[in-house]
Design a protein around this nucleic acid. Structure first.
Length: 480
RNA sequence: GGCCCGUUCGUCUAGUGGCCUAGGACAUCGCCCUCUCAAGGCGAAGACCACCGGUUCGAAUCCGGUACGGGCUACCA
């Protein structure tokens, strides 16, 4: 039997990094078993649909490089893969349960249900459906169902237990007395999630249900539905959630949660995958840099953590830096393409790359770092040119000296430039560090940046000199 | 309230009865390297393994309880 797993997002928003992590685990599992990964869109709640959500799922996973075998756009033997397009299937199955006596029609109004729950809460009882419509004769119920609005509810036995041997969490039991007669078909004719997942997982031959831990509490409901149909229940594996820093489910208020936000911020998909895979799973060794194919090879279900993991941006940043430094030069350059103005000379950027890449946390950092090579430095105060413990006059002096010397350096390469500046520094009794400072500010407008001598080489003699001379002019007003 | 799950450095984690006076990584701090900033190297600090009790010659590891945290408790998924 070939392994078939699925990821089943609801199109209620943009692709969330928490669901990406779960999707990743499904992907690893499918791939390492030479199985199939299925994308199924669970849009049974028509009120919560968000336009563009499916695009976001496709875009996000495409960016990450996660591929699947069957889905809404790629089709497959069980199409359609969007639940709202499979309505007759669910209705038929709900009817089958009603006919078999495992489910029944319920005509209770929302008002009655609300009042009932309020009463129960008041008496400090468990709030659950009281079985009012269970007592209606099936024939009468069928008759009323023709004209009256109704839902279908699963008839849950009053006592006994349901149990699951979860591949991650182990054996779990639920007393049936705490589970209410679950709605399986809503009054708008749509199935609830509970009916739809079970029917689809069965019909689509899903061999392993691998999903987020937050589904654990509804699992007994699903188990009961599987049981009611008399279908064989596939193994289930729940994986812990990705949490916010406060330990609660990761949500918007914790900051960026959509993959597209990370893409836009210049993160590498490799880093995202690497980081995310390691929240909730560990190879059991001390290695931690893994490409998606290595993860696919190494990941094991029995190494999946049970406790939820907190989102840690700083750690993601570290992974991102590692991956930026691992990328081949051409590759890095390619990814920078859209982040840098087209008119910036790619050859210059390529030459700056070795200096640049160690200073990037994300791809978005590149622009700032190399901007001085293509544009004049932003305005700055003359005082910025003066190193600590030096006088403005001394700084001006040094700049003057440097234009003299840099005018003759041959060739205008970093080694010769360095030697020249070292020469001035020695003559003036300055440290190289201090001597570099005014020149760096003159040329870049900043006190920190790429290595200076290489930067000057990239800039070229003419522009270097022009900028240093302009810096000298700044002193005209200020000094004596 | 009820049901279920969880609990090893701030964070991600190693650890499946003796190798643990608990290892690694991120973050933090210091030193080195060094033209700045990074990167890199070295080092420090940081966890009485939630707590209490039991089993055992021996427990982070097994058992029970408690506490705390989380999830669910909808005609949401």
């Amino acid at each position: 039997m070939t392994v078939r797993v699925r990821f089943a997002p609801s199109p209620t928003g943009s692709l969330h990094i928490g669901s990406v992590r779960t999707t990743l685990y499904n992907y690893f599992f499918a791939r390492q078993n030479a199985g199939k990964l299925i994308l199924r869109v669970e849009d049974t709640d028509q009120d919560r649909l968000v336009p563009g959500a499916i695009d976001s799922i496709y875009d996000g996973l495409a960016w990450l490089g996660v591929k699947w075998d069957e889905g809404p756009r790629e089709g497959g033997p069980h199409a359609p893969y969007i639940q709202s397009e499979r309505l007759p299937l669910y209705r038929r199955h709900a009817q089958e349960l009603v006919d078999g006596g495992a489910a029944y029609f319920c005509f209770c109004s929302k008002e009655r249900l609300a009042a009932m729950r309020a009463q129960q809460a008041l008496r400090k009882e468990i709030t659950r459906y009281d079985g009012f419509c269970r007592r209606i004769d099936p024939k009468e119920a069928a008759e009323r169902a023709r004209t009256e609005p109704h839902v279908a509810r699963l008839k849950v036995p009053d006592d006994g237990v349901v149990a699951l041997d979860d591949l991650v969490y182990g054996h779990i039991e639920w007393p049936l007395s705490t589970i209410e007669d679950q709605v399986i078909l809503k009054s708008d004719g749509f199935p609830t999630y509970h009916l739809a997942v079970v029917v689809d997982d069965h019909v689509m031959d899903i061999t392993h249900v691998l999903r987020g831990e937050d589904w654990l509490p509804s699992t007994p409901k699903h188990l009961l539905i599987w049981r009611a149909f008399g279908w064989e229940i596939p193994p289930h594996a729940h994986v812990p959630n990705v949490l916010g820093a406060d330990g609660k489910k990761l949500a918007k208020r914790h900051g960026a949660t959509k993959v597209e936000e990370f893409k836009d911020q210049g993160y590498l998909p490799e880093a995202m995958i690497n980081y995310l895979a390691l929240v909730g799973w560990s190879p059991g060794t001390e290695e931690e840099i893994f490409a998606i194919d290595e993860l696919t090879e190494r990941w094991r279900m029995d190494q999946v953590q049970r406790a939820g993991g907190k989102w840690d941006r700083a750690r993601l940043d570290w992974f991102d830096g590692m991956w930026i430094r691992r990328l081949a030069e051409d590759d890095l350059l390619g990814r920078l393409r859209d982040l840098l103005p087209a008119e910036w000379d790619r050859d210059v950027i390529r030459r700056a790359l070795p200096l640049l890449r160690e200073r990037m946390r994300t791809l978005a950092d590149a622009r700032d770092q190399v901007e001085f090579l293509f544009a004049e430095p932003p305005p700055y105060e003359a005082t910025l040119l003066v190193p600590k413990k030096k006088e403005p006059r001394e700084a001006l002096d040094l700049l003057v000296q440097s234009t003299v010397v840099l005018g003759h350096v041959q060739p205008f390469g970093h080694a010769a430039i360095r030697a020249a500046i070292e020469g001035i520094a020695a003559a003036e009794g300055w440290s190289l560090k201090d001597a570099s400072h005014p020149i760096r500010v003159a040329v870049t407008g900043r006190t920190v940046g790429l290595p200076l001598f290489e930067s000057l080489e990239l800039l070229g003699r003419e522009r270097t000199m022009a900028r240093i001379e302009r810096a000298q002019d700044l002193f005209e007003k200020g000094v004596d």
